[in-house]
Design a protein around this nucleic acid. Sequence first.
DNA 1: AATTCGCCCTGTCGGC
DNA 2: TGCCGACAGGGCGAAT
Length: 301
Amino acid sequence: MPELPEVETIVRMLIPSVEGKRIEKAELRLGRMLLDMDPGNFSSALKGQGVSRILRRGKYIVIELADCSLVIHLGMTGQLTFSPADYVENAGFVRTVTGLEKPKGVHPVDKHTHLILWLENGERVLFRDPRTFGKIFLVPGRDWPRHPRLSILGEEPLELRVKSFLKKSFPAASARPIKALLLDQSFLAGVGNIYADEALFKSGIHPQSRVRDLREPEQVRLLEAVKEVLRKGIRNNGTSFSDYRKPDGTEGSNQERLQVYGRGGEPCRSCRTILKKSLVAQRGTVHCPTCQGKKAARRHS
DNA sequence: AATTCGCCCTGTCGGC
DNA sequence: TGCCGACAGGGCGAAT
């Protein structure tokens, strides 16, 4: 599922090929992906607009245009790809510098392709989402930070200073499991199930620990771990555990470097204990009973 | 007021 | 082999 590192990777890779270009036509193929707007109005609002800036806020992709902003959330299985002018739809083979090859990368337009932004010269931005948990909406001008979906977002994990953030925003009396807090987008914007489990493992904290039971050193360790696993995710171009793809259609590589997510029943890479899968805050959760137990907490202090 | 629950959706996988 | 239920889960609005 696309979380902060995946969305950041997509944005960084889209910028060089899309910023500064003009949208000739917007083709919305599944109306219910669009929020609060008539699909016809949407297409006419986008037509002819230049892309001035592409950025990320939490897990949202913001595409600023001349007089409105197109906001996209990829949900669980959303993909945003760039299809170059010479991309051949459904071609069995394409001619490349090394000869005839099957086209790689960008997924052809299929029944899961819900939005096509046609740029000049036949270039396209494709939004594809098999499970349709994604969302598309339009915000007037550059006012997207005040849109209800974005205004509730907490701080950007990679921009905050840990100590002052904790002082200001850590709900020290909360009885919630710490993992629920990490997933709460009004606390931190952009952390999802993968990086929450990875950060808890890295800091040696049990996902079910109550927020109020974490002492300051643990809080600091956890937030530093969040930043580290997110930066590592970005370095590796995101985690292609299932559907996530980069804008060129290829996979990231962070899935090869995960310590716990998706590894329930396998041995811990650190201590060989069998990793335990459970349900925490209604989310599938994997942790190491040894590295993230009470004894581990003492070991870290 | 804080927290949990139910729902949306479809491809994939394991069991029989 | 084929069918079917379980599962994956982000975020919102309702329920507790």
